[in-house]
Amino acid sequence: MRVNNQIPPNSYFSALRFRFPVYHFFYLSNALSMLRILLVPAIYWSLVSGHMVMLFFFGGAAFISDMLDGFFARRLDQRSELGKVLDPIADKLTIAFVSFALILSRKPGFDANFPVWAFLIMVMRDFLILGGSVFLFKRTRIIEPSNFWGRAATVLISIALIFYILNYQQIFVVQYKISYCLLWIGIVLAIVSLLSHKQRLIEIYKNTG
């Protein structure tokens, strides 16, 4: 309930402002994560349009920023709740848009086409985690970071996507079974991370309820 146009201290929006103060957006680590998010449309456009030089440029910039954001967060003592949110969002958006671009680029009769089922599983899993995290935050004001299984899944799926791109463009042909196996393992780990995340959210909710 608003009083004199002020947001009550225990409101959802007040909690957002408390957890994500404006100055956190100017942390170098968080700025790099936001840069990765801004690079997602450029990476998608480069892949769909077949501009491989631009793809490697934008993709390389995203990769370097991904490596540096965690380094600067630790080095400059810039760990923040905002960073817990931005980093996985950047990863999820990049993987989702690259996967979708590969689906749009499917070639008839091509063995190494990216499987649609993998894209659907990844998107559904991310929406479930997002929904659970938002629910937990609204009830407990706690932000749960990504877990080990989720980070491992991101690494394996990212490597698989790189192999798929190389095969599509005939730049460096990798046995499609290798890409497929890496993708499968990554998907399994992603599902494990979802179950682990669900269990963790339930535990936090019970302990703070």
Rank of each mutant, 00 (worst) to 15 (best):
Val53Lys: 02
Phe13Trp: 06
Asp91Ser: 11
Phe58Asp: 00
Phe56His: 06
Ser46Arg: 01
Phe18Arg: 12
Arg74Ser: 07
Arg74Lys: 02
Leu182Asn: 15
His197Gln: 01
Ile157Arg: 10
Lys206Cys: 01
Val53Asp: 14
Ala96His: 06
Arg74Tyr: 07
Ala31Asn: 11
Ile185Phe: 09
Val123Ser: 00
His197Cys: 01
Asp87Val: 07
Gly150Leu: 07
Lys206Ile: 12
Asn207Thr: 02
Trp184Leu: 14
Asp69Thr: 06
Asn207Lys: 02
Ile43Asn: 13
Ile37Thr: 10
Asn5Asp: 15
Ala42Cys: 13
Leu86Tyr: 15
Leu194Ala: 07
Ile171His: 00
Ile202Arg: 09
Ile129Gly: 00
Tyr205Gln: 02
Ile121His: 11
Arg19Gly: 12
Ser29Cys: 11
Met122Glu: 01
Ser133Asn: 03
Val22Glu: 12
Leu76Gly: 09
Arg2Leu: 11
Ser80Glu: 11
Gln78Ala: 04
Asn4Glu: 01
Leu156Ala: 15
Asn5Met: 14
Ala42Gln: 03
Ile7Pro: 04
Arg2Glu: 10
Phe13Arg: 08
Phe135Glu: 07
Ser29Leu: 10
Trp45Asn: 10
Ser146Lys: 03
Leu86Cys: 12
Leu194Pro: 02
Ala118Gln: 01
Leu161Trp: 09
Ser196Tyr: 10
Arg17His: 06
Val188Gly: 11
Lys92His: 09
Ser29Ile: 11
Val116Ser: 02
Leu93Ala: 11
Glu81Trp: 03
Leu28Pro: 15
His24Val: 08
Leu104Gly: 01
Ala118Val: 02
Leu68Lys: 15
Leu55His: 02
Asn10Phe: 09
Arg2Pro: 04
